[in-house]
Design a protein around this nucleic acid. Sequence first.
DNA 1: CTGAAAGCGCTAACAC
DNA 2: GTGTTAGCGCTTTCAG
Lengths: 335, 335
Amino acid sequence: MVTLKHLAEQLNVSVSTVSKALHDSDEISPDTIERVKALAKFLNYKPNQLAVSLKNSKTNTIGVIIPNILNHFFAKALFAIEQEANKQGYNIITCLSNELYAKEVNSLQLLSNGSVDGFIMSIAEETQISNNLDHIEAILKQHVPIVLFDRVSEKITTDKVIIDDFDAAYQATNHLLSEGRKHIVLISNIDELSVGKLRTNGYHEALKEAKNYDSEPLVIAIKRDGSIEAEIEKLFKDHAAIDGIIAIDNTSGVVALHKALKLNYKVPEDLSIIGFSDENVLQFTDPKLSTISQHTIDVGKASVELLINRLQNKSETSTEIKTIKAQLQLRGTTK
Amino acid sequence: MVTLKHLAEQLNVSVSTVSKALHDSDEISPDTIERVKALAKFLNYKPNQLAVSLKNSKTNTIGVIIPNILNHFFAKALFAIEQEANKQGYNIITCLSNELYAKEVNSLQLLSNGSVDGFIMSIAEETQISNNLDHIEAILKQHVPIVLFDRVSEKITTDKVIIDDFDAAYQATNHLLSEGRKHIVLISNIDELSVGKLRTNGYHEALKEAKNYDSEPLVIAIKRDGSIEAEIEKLFKDHAAIDGIIAIDNTSGVVALHKALKLNYKVPEDLSIIGFSDENVLQFTDPKLSTISQHTIDVGKASVELLINRLQNKSETSTEIKTIKAQLQLRGTTK
DNA sequence: CTGAAAGCGCTAACAC
DNA sequence: GTGTTAGCGCTTTCAG
């Protein structure tokens, strides 16, 4: 590894001269600067980031903790975070909690002592269920900033980026009501998550406010390990009169559509379906699924902005909660 | 941040005593060890990894460069790499090249000077097209080990983990031949990639060896930005006699199945389809897609093993190429 | 059993 | 315009 010292020796100058020269200090003669830079380039010198970070107590890297990278929403969020961070001159260290409390604790602990300047994270399912957030509080107390996105908690006071989940489901439900649907069911396999609860509440609220809607709300909660397909088949068997479906997780809307078509429901004539999905599933459906689009890229971008802001304005200003509007995208599975 | 120095001051001992005590050195009295550890725990001391790494010239972190995190194959590979690395006591820094040469160069440069002990990477599309691999050679020359997985190059001599792409496609094609198919087409949107070429070759070879197969090979190469759906619709229109499809990328098999069913092909009676997909798409298809399964978890795991091996046996043994067998999973879209 | 000192690679205040 | 020095937090050799 080429170091400042090597360059200094080769050039018969001191290490500090080399360092200054490489930073274009005006303490150094143009001539020397040029010689230093030439040799640095020739030897392909790259500063050791570890040493720089140690010296500066600043790493220019962000720790990102993702609950489940196989979930397309999070993959896309990571994509956006990485992109924006890079643009702003930050690197990222990614940890995958795999929805486990223990891994989340571990990652936070491991990185919080100097390895990263701050965190962007979404809370693991296990953590949300237990609602034990002391590990996050602990990091915050050490003045390492954290931005929470999507899966957040009211127990924690910090910067957050959230989606207006309640409103998104509320609007979706209202849309189906406006189509004159009389039996609207909500399907969820994210029952335990904060976002799942909010979406479900939005659905309930819309139905409660509805005039002329006589059916009881019906929520199908699919267990994490359960088969979405089997549950949905059962749903159609038990409730043949269904004419509207809101699917609040990433995939069950697509599955519901396939099953419905298989059972010869006419979509959207007899039955409307709205999913909480990204465009990536559209190529797999016909008619194209109407969805609630989560603007995932914006979520990631906003998270990075919030964190870097906090990092740079050391000012202990009050925390910010940024809400990214979800958007109802009507396509082929709604009237 | 709590440092060794803090602990030392509080306890009226030297920094080196503290350091040794925390490492259970037998130079230190059991009594002191206990006192040190107690205080360390009380103050929630965590060693500064930057300092440790700088001192040891060893970071225990692996740089992972992923071409496209929105591709499920790579998301799963990352998942596996992270998991295995963690198990072995390594952290990962993830960089996303987004298929771009420049980003790949950048990530490699940035991390190669001390930030990571080695790399696990799959080559960006742009890099594979240009076939300019000097940046990778350069890192290798600095004795920073690299493991290449999936998208590799023969120009580079280093440890590699590959899938037997040729053989997988060869077998798949032979299976369709054994069903008596007479018009087998190959669909690809990864024409430019090493793996795409290998799979296509396997298809060609199988057809060449086949007796009683009279049709010409037919390869539909979908441009990166092209619409898979439109291309496949066109395929069915232009070649109604098709009775076998091999789709060599992650998604086009699913799309082909949907379009075929829509056009009232009987699958698998009139038409067999084999995709190169993971189980994650199965819930979207009926009948279930027959696939070539890539054992992505094994690919990730093997990559980590190879790298750590290289890291620990500094011995300059010859490089290793590990082939992970792909597996033909016959389900509902083949006879 | 404990401590002093050097050094990993870098930056920056302070000489000269 | 250039060099000396100290120090970031840690480990480790060597003295005591």
